[in-house]
């Protein structure tokens, strides 16, 4: 395990890896930019297994209660993880650029409640409040491939071995070994 908090050599971003993370010594994180809005206060808010690669503009946008776990050999190639509860990614997963996994929309459907959040944000130097909307955990099982620009919405589980086509928006659970595409994403074949 890395000794935390720590810097990354040659990092373009002026940040640190927070101490409440468990990053395997055989995992790779390209930049501390990934942690610039990491606010988890859990003992371990993020776990990265051996062989995990975290590249480009990947961001762990984690609220105080967030717990993010990534198995082994998974690739996060410019992914935004918005987490107020729990997001679990298995092993051998491939997540492409501009994929968003969000276990919360961070905004209620009620218009007046949204107005209050906007006021809170303005009072707090334009930082959007976390933990104001119920979050529903996301589970991405082993060996899942998520194409570029996809969005996975709160409460979704994606089964083992499945593929989500580029630019899909996933509202519902996807069974194992399925190919799902579209907005909303629909299963179009089995693997």
């Amino acid at each position: 395990m890395m000794s935390n908090p720590q810097l990354i050599e040659g990092d373009w971003f002026d940040g640190v890896i927070p101490s409440n993370t468990s990053i395997d010594s055989d995992a790779y994180v390209e930049s501390t930019y990934s942690f610039h809005c990491f606010e988890s206060t859990r003992t371990i808010g993020l776990t990265l297994g051996p062989g995990v690669g975290v590249y480009r503009q990947t961001v762990f946008d984690a609220g105080p209660h967030a717990q993010i776990e990534v198995g082994s050999y998974s690739m996060l190639n410019g992914v935004r993880i918005v987490c107020d509860s729990q997001i679990t990614i298995g092993s051998h997963c491939l997540l492409a650029w501009n994929v968003i996994l969000m276990d919360t929309r961070r905004a209620p459907y009620d218009r007046n409640a949204r107005r209050q959040l906007i006021s809170l944000a303005i009072e707090n130097d334009f930082r959007w409040p976390t933990d104001q909307v119920a979050a529903e955990r996301i589970t991405v099982a082993d060996n899942v491939w998520v194409g570029f620009d996809c969005i996975v919405l709160p409460g979704v589980s994606i089964g083992e071995g499945s593929v989500i086509g580029a630019r899909s928006v996933v509202y519902d659970n996807i069974p194992p070994y399925s190919v799902a595409v579209g907005n909303p994403a629909r299963v179009v074949r089995q693997l």
Binding site: M102, R105, Y109, R111, L153, R167, V169, N183
Partner: peptide, 9 residues
Amino acid sequence: GSFIEPGTM
């Protein structure tokens, strides 16, 4: 007052 879900066209 409308709410446009993520990724909507």
